[in-house]
Design a protein around this nucleic acid. Structure first.
Length: 444
DNA sequence: TCTGGGGTCCTAGGACCC
DNA sequence: TCTGGGGTCCTAGGACCC
């Protein structure tokens, strides 16, 4: 029986729950503006370079999908309403979503703002039944958030995720067909899926891996069970091979990890009109550095590694990164490192996307510069306090100068040469990347 | 039709240490 | 003098998730 949601498995058969809000961003927009009800609504970038982030089911009837370029979406649905997105609002709804789930169990792992896995096993002694818990979650989210969702239950993450997808409404021949809302992947369903699903439906298999697998004659999940893991590893790497091999047998050892630590924050921007020249790039990077700095402070983190990303008009990207011996969280420091890194990039084309990322976090109070700063503030003597503050500030700025110097050194002193620094005749510099002549007209 | 922005993880090579 | 292998860190790039 395909729709086995009416059956009532125990926790051993359905320990993992996956829950996914329907058309999340678009649904929040419709809740906040009921005049949008029943209309094809999307959230995404409306410009020439925009893509759809979330599409209402009304929009999906026209073939509009998330990740679709907005130009394409509008062609498919000329009346499409594309809204810019209000992520603070979505985050607020997401927190309420988490609160509802937390009432059931603390063992949940968010995936993005609108979905999560739950491990129900800690609820055993409460006598919780998975299907009943799933229905309870759905009705609370409907009543308290006015949002709809799909819930999947299975033996592991693999099947729980496939099951929630199965539970969802879908468009068939331009018509919307209601989903079951809750779906449990029984043993019979597992077997059917492993026999019938394409490799592309597996977690971690995107366009690139699917195409590699297809060249090996592996189009279906069932095909994966026939190859040996070493052959697979040769083409997709050992880690992917191990996952795929396990998935093909219905095995998935991934645990539900609650409270996953944040590992990086960043700001990327694609520009409607590409940036031309280093001045525009640096101006934009300073604004991005301020955004990244604010995000770090909101998370109470300091970062040791700063990465800049540049995507050119031909869609090729390059990145440059620098790891410091200490952590930073202020825009001046981040901007200084980013600038030194960006100066080392040859701007061979206009810049379509620019990004700054911060990673290798330290706890704020484990950062050496910050640590001594914290210690001195405990001092009762105001003069000693002031002295220590200025000493620490000095230490911080010296350390930053050293770091910038290090970037210069890595990429060659030329990396930071500006026209103002150069003489009339220009200079000739040997770098690790070959020799470059620099003059008042710029690099040649 | 032509590809965003928030992230995570993996891989490979080089530097460095023992 | 020339050589090894393992571990860890850093860098750059790529793929994937929503």
């Amino acid at each position: 029986m395909l729709n086995s949601a009416s059956e009532d498995p125990g926790l051993d058969e359905a320990p993992i729950l996956h829950i996914d809000l329907d058309a999340f961003f678009a649904s929040v927009e419709i809740l906040d503006d009921p005049s949008l009800e029943g209309k094809p609504v999307c959230v995404g970038g409306a410009g020439e370079r925009g893509v759809i982030a979330s599409a209402s089911y009304e929009a999906r009837r026209f073939g509009v999908r998330s990740a679709m370029p907005s130009v394409v979406a509008r062609r498919a649905c000329p009346d499409l309403i594309i809204l810019p997105g209000r992520f603070d609002r979505y985050e607020a709804y997401s927190r309420r979503f988490h609160d509802v789930v937390r009432d059931l169990t603390p063992d949940f792992e968010p995936i993005g703002l609108d979905e999560m896995f739950c491990d129900l096993r800690s609820l055993r002694r409460l006598g919780v039944r998975p299907v009943a818990a799933a229905h309870e979650l759905r009705s609370r989210i409907s009543n308290e958030l006015a949002l709809r969702c799909g819930v999947g239950l299975g033996r592991n993450k693999l099947f729980a995720k496939l099951a929630s997808k199965q539970s969802k409404p879908r468009v068939v021949g331009g018509r919307l067909v209601e989903g079951t809302g809750v779906f449990w992947a029984s043993r019979e369903v597992e077997e059917k899926w492993l026999n019938e699903l394409p490799v592309r439906s597996l977690w971690g298999v995107g366009p690139a891996t699917a195409s590699k697998l297809e060249k090996l004659g592996l189009q279906w999940v069932r095909d994966l069970a026939r190859v040996d893991q070493e052959t697979l590893a040769h083409h997709v790497g050992p880690s992917m091979a191990a996952s795929l091999f396990a998935y093909a047998k219905g095995e998935d050892l991934r645990e539900v990890v609650a409270d996953r630590a944040l590992k990086s924050v960043g700001r990327d921007q694609t520009f409607a009109k590409s940036l031309e020249g280093i001045d525009q790039v640096l101006e934009m990077s300073r604004a991005q550095a301020a955004v990244v700095a604010r995000a770090l402070r909101e998370e109470s983190r300091v970062a040791r590694t700063i990465t800049v990303v540049v995507r050119f008009d031909d869609l090729t990207s390059i990145s440059r990164s620098q790891t410091l011996s200490f952590g930073i969280d202020d825009e001046v420091s981040i901007a200084a490192i980013a600038e030194a890194l960006l100066q080392s990039v040859e701007l061979r084309q206009a810049v379509r996307l620019l990004g700054i990322h911060a990673s290798s976090f330290l706890e704020r109070d484990k950062n050496q510069v910050q640590l001594s700063f914290a210690l001195e503030t405990t001092s009762d003597d105001p003069r000693q306090r002031a002295a220590t503050i200025s000493r620490e500030r000095q230490t911080g700025s010296e350390a930053l100068r050293d770091a910038v110097d290090e970037v210069r050194q890595r990429f060659g002193r030329a990396a930071l040469a500006t026209v103002a620094e150069l003489g009339e005749e220009g200079i000739h510099i040997e770098t690790q990347r070959g020799s470059h002549a620099f003059g008042p007209g710029g690099a040649s």
